[in-house]
Amino acid sequence: MIDQTGLILGIVLAVVFLAYIFWPENVFAAQRQKTRLEYLEERREQLYENLRDLNFEFKAGKYPDEDFAAQRAQLEEEAARLLAEIDILRNRA
């Protein structure tokens, strides 16, 4: 049992969809691969956040002085390496 109104409505719906999909326009978002520099900058933000967390937990009394110093040194070393690579890539750019 095919009802004609339903059929017409369905066809209208399909036409509207096709118009939306293929409507000619020049503005569309282009695809782009993320660069190593962008990745390193994201990582830097994360390292800063890790440092902030560590500082806060130390102030809250969760870690003894020596644990805090060791952890902070590790994070700072990692951040230094990262910042050096960011500098190199920025200079190249």
Partner: peptide
């Protein structure tokens, strides 16, 4: 209305397949 529903599903399938 059942015809409209069935056609809508078929159209949705074709569009998803296009995607």
């Amino acid at each position: 209305m059942a015809t409209f529903g069935a056609i809508s599903l078929l159209v949705a399938l074709i569009l998803a397949a296009y995607n």
